[in-house]
Nucleic acid binder design. Sequence first.
DNA 1: CGTTGCGTTGATCTCTATCAAAAAAGGTGG
DNA 2: CCACCTTTTTTGATAGAGATCAACGCAACG
Lengths: 222, 222
Amino acid sequence: MDQDLQSVLLSAPLFSQLRPEQLDELVGPVDIKRYPRGTEIIRVGEPADAFLVVLSGAVKVYLLSPDGREHILHMVQSGGLVAEAAVFAQGTYPASTMATEDSTVAMVRRARVTDLLQRDPEVGLAMVAGLSRRLREFVSVIEDLSLRDVASRLARFILENSTDGRCRLPGTKTELAAQLGTVLEPLSRALRKLKERGTIDEQSGVIEVIDRDALEDLLLGT
Amino acid sequence: MDQDLQSVLLSAPLFSQLRPEQLDELVGPVDIKRYPRGTEIIRVGEPADAFLVVLSGAVKVYLLSPDGREHILHMVQSGGLVAEAAVFAQGTYPASTMATEDSTVAMVRRARVTDLLQRDPEVGLAMVAGLSRRLREFVSVIEDLSLRDVASRLARFILENSTDGRCRLPGTKTELAAQLGTVLEPLSRALRKLKERGTIDEQSGVIEVIDRDALEDLLLGT
DNA sequence: CGTTGCGTTGATCTCTATCAAAAAAGGTGG
DNA sequence: CCACCTTTTTTGATAGAGATCAACGCAACG
């Protein structure tokens, strides 16, 4: 079930360009840890001295408001990276991370990455490209939160996460709501509205797009 | 009034590490253009093949909703850069840019940066750090929009932009509102509330922090 | 079967956007 | 310095979106 650390890294945009010997250098002897579902892995504010590679299971990266509301920045599946960016801005983790399923996670310390970075310009280029992509995603999120209503955000989520008309929800609907910057109830209503209009269909966590154009209109129209 | 292109670049985090000959290489023969106040410089969606250096005046980087509301991502003063990140993620500009004052702007084409990046690992490291910092800022914005009310966002803005108890508003209050993900009226009320409580004082675009602790409480308490 | 977590639905309540109008604040030209 | 015009800001009233609260249905599971 666990993925191979090296192959995970190779499939990550940030490190896909690395040659085998560079990979070895990057990885070296790493910590690999198991976290049961619900365990906090990273707490916001801790010194950011390692990034995470999810080898099995799944984790969420999230922010908490003072009164306990949660905004999920990413859901990271097995094979994904966490905090690759935080590691470069010396400082602290800007968000918390929790295992949403039983997970095994490898930690790669900052020094290993920066060493590599300093020696190989190719690596730098790849990382710059990867970070820029992430930045662009965040701009979309800001656009959603500031300028679009819940239904539109949902429409965008469906459009961006569906492959030929289908899209599996990542985790519970409560989690999806937290990803869209809202809570369960409004999300539930938005889903219902789309279903009633015949725009989508949804059962047991799988969304089927019926009227793609209607979804796109939602993004443009309001 | 115009700033020197080279010295602007040197003072930008992204390029501050460059040696003189690298700078020359980066800059080469650049376009320098003038834009009167109110002119659109970049339109969202255009191919992102250059980044901007503001030599005089000021510009705003912003998103527009279908119904015309505006969210300002950055206000960039003379000496600042625009779209440094967009240039690396090959693709299109994710936001628009407009001159908020009469401005002169230099354009640096993508090829010049990537060339340099490929040749010098130091540059990569600096850029990676710069992008990570930007990423972190965006996380804060997402946190604001998703989890905090207008008064709290204002408090955070004041805290982060004040040097020893003072903070000059960048542009009009309408613009500040658009930066905080709201509009003029709610911002005006939030300001009044803080003034009435004796937390801050404000006149002619300058905010004076009277009770710093109260501002910080706003961020934590709700 | 009870429990426990999740989801739906309905009824408020709060915050904030919008609308409207008046008051300041800035410039401009005389 | 003043009258005039434009832009910005304040304030009030209203409306709308969404968060919260509460009740209930529904599964999975011990």
